[in-house]
Design a protein around this nucleic acid. Structure first.
Lengths: 220, 220
DNA sequence: GCAAAAGTGTTAGACCTACACCCATGA
DNA sequence: TCATGGGTGTAGGTCTAACACTTTTGC
């Protein structure tokens, strides 16, 4: 059956970012089927007949990785006619942020079917998924500068040093501790929990929380 | 023939912006067919089997309005399952910029099939096209602040007052003349043509041109 | 000479950047 | 007591924002 004119196979993909071993990593899944069988790729899948685009991204992510409740936003739609060697597939790419604190244990099963790959050292990826990751990284880095999106990589409670490290890793450059803290405080979007994070032979760190956990605002 | 699962009717739409009568306006076309027959809508149409998304946006714009050679970029993909009352249609929305100097005469035929509508006083639009226009306006306004996109609304040669007026209209606020000129000069992306624009009983204005006409760069 | 828009600099305050030391803890 | 990372303030420079008058032209 030929695909009728002006319909396309429609998919979504998601670049899930988190921080692991002090690097920005993206979640990859091994493709079970042709084309690119066995090759690493972004989680994603076909959009259901009656399913929203973001809903599809959320669903396929949950089905393929068990992850849910992540910050997620639409990134860009990739539709070069020949991006899939078989037939026309248009994919609406998204990116999502997983606080590293939620990494514990999740995704430890099926280790040869999924992996976290550093964005600056990706393996060969199926389709144009390398371009998607690159664009997502770029978008995330820009949004760090003019929005409060960085907090979406924090757990419920976090220290300012954690937050700073995440920013440094994504931006790929060291930040001044005092200036960073001044800036974060001036946003007025976090508050002290009153608790302390104790780890190692050193002074404990204050734990903060977001005032409005889901909110991402533009700044400046 | 039922549409097979996971294929969708795929379309593109374009919000063409220009400035008319000191207002930011968007180009609308009257829908010839159901659904929403006779209602104003954005130019656009179905993506061909072997056609890129941007190619489709460019083609449908040319076919429906005669416009070509405009700055154009992808905006966002709208895919709510019920955005089209008949069947699932996903549209990849774009926006484009038409320098007002190119308005002369173009589009003067078929006046009841096309119109320029002020973005802050749109008529009822088909589908979710009002949301698309709103998002495009917002994106354009943000990009004015951190990129050189504003020059894409200028003709080949332009005065700084023209440029300032365009910025003021899009941002919806007056700008300081001296500060604006200082900022534009500091971008180093325009040069004097040596010619002057003479109009009315007052001092002529210098005409400038872009050094790299197509280029849109991030600034700051 | 008058009306209308073009063109031009300076100053005060805000903001950003660079920078170094003491503190609290566990071992 | 030592090693480790947490926590803090200031000063200089840069950038931004506010502000008013002179110039050139056509009528």
């Amino acid at each position: 059956m030929p695909i009728p004119k002006a319909t396309a196979v429609l998919a979504t993909n998601v670049v899930v970012f988190t921080i692991r071993d002090e690097r920005l990593v993206a979640l990859l899944v091994r493709r079970p089927r042709k084309p690119f069988a066995g090759v690493w790729s972004l989680p994603g899948g076909l959009v259901g007949d009656d399913e929203g685009l973001e809903d599809c991204a959320v669903r396929t992510l949950r089905d393929q990785t068990g992850l849910k409740g992540l910050y997620l936003e639409q990134l860009y739609t990739f539709g070069n006619p020949d991006r899939d060697p078989r037939t026309r597939v248009v994919t609406v790419a998204h990116f999502a942020l997983l606080p590293p604190a939620r990494l514990n244990g999740e995704l430890d099963d099926l280790p040869d079917q999924r992996c976290w790959a550093p964005v600056d050292a990706l393996p060969d990826l199926a389709f144009d998924h390398d371009r998607i990751v690159a664009m997502a990284h770029q978008r995330l880095a820009s949004k760090l500068e003019y929005s409060t999106i960085g907090f979406q990589l924090m757990g419920e409670r976090f220290t300012l040093s954690e937050l700073q490290q995440v920013h440094e890793i994504i931006l790929g450059e060291p930040l001044d501790k005092r200036n960073f803290r001044k800036r974060v405080r001036s946003l007025h979007c976090i508050e002290e929990t009153g608790d302390w994070y104790r780890a190692g032979n050193h002074r404990p760190a204050r734990l903060y929380r977001l005032k409005q956990p889901g909110a991402v605002e533009y700044i400046k």
